[in-house]
């Protein structure tokens, strides 16, 4: 039976877990709730670290969540090539956990910013963007206060050189992110983190578009098409 099971992690303070699970269902996969204290991933094929304010963003956004038991399991799974997606706070957590390079800091405008954001998909060579054409423009909500991507020059050069910048803000940068970076991938293209929220763009009734759905469908394709050993 070809079903794809995608885990959605809930930390205390996670907010967009319901939305991520809904997006997984819309993409034809089965969402599996994972709790921050879980030691294992309950046999899922891929994992989403959703948005929110895990642990109230105490210390630093994502810093405490990155040290929870479930993240150890995610780190091990990622090392074996499991597709992992971090959205907003999830992106911050993956950076804090060392699964992705760089950091997210306070928006240049200092305020929380919620808006319908145009993004350019820079590469289809990741587990989460295979369904997009490189260069495609999509509209997805952005909603964050610590969304400005920063990294040192060497890291930026590596990301750019290796084609690991996955999403870039189109038009004027909303938050001052370096190189207008909205999302990046790990070296093997299996782990992706982005600040905007594709799970809020799966149905034009409740979001600005359905442009975000193909992220989740891409992962389903990858899981179902790959060898499950």
């Amino acid at each position: 039976m070809n079903t794809c099971r995608i885990g959605v992690i809930t930390f205390p303070g996670t907010l967009d877990d319901v939305d991520a699970a809904r997006a997984v269902r819309h993409a034809g996969a089965e969402p599996v709730g994972l709790w921050h204290a879980d030691e294992d991933l309950r046999g899922v094929d891929a994992v989403i670290v959703p948005g929110g304010f895990s642990y109230g963003d105490y210390l630093r956004a994502g810093a405490i969540a990155a040290h929870q038991p479930v993240l150890r399991a995610v780190r091990d799974a990622a090392a074996r090539g499991m597709p992992v997606l971090g959205i907003c706070n999830g992106f911050q957590i993956l950076c804090e956990a060392g699964l992705l390079p760089g950091a997210l800091v306070r928006n240049a405008g200092l305020h929380f910013l919620c808006r319908d954001q145009r993004l350019r998909v820079e590469t289809s060579a990741t587990a989460w963007t295979a369904r997009y054409a490189a260069g495609a423009e999509i509209v997805v909500p952005l909603k964050s206060i610590e969304g400005r991507y920063v990294a040192d020059a060497a890291t930026l050069a590596t990301l750019e050189g290796d084609g690991r910048v996955v999403f870039r803000y189109a038009g004027a940068s909303p938050n001052g992110a370096l190189h207008d970076i909205a999302g990046i991938a790990s070296a093997d293209g299996r782990v992706v983190g982005l600040m905007p929220h594709p799970e809020h763009a799966i149905d034009p009734l409740t979001g600005p578009s359905s442009d975000g759905l193909d992220l989740f469908r891409s992962a389903v394709d990858v899981v179902l098409g790959s060898v499950r050993a």
Binding site: V18, C114, K143, E199, H200, G207
Partner: peptide
């Protein structure tokens, strides 16, 4: 003002 508020969370905002 309103761009400082999350209007999307919960995915039910029509």
């Amino acid at each position: 003002v309103t761009d400082q508020y999350d209007r999307y969370v919960r995915g039910a905002t029509v």
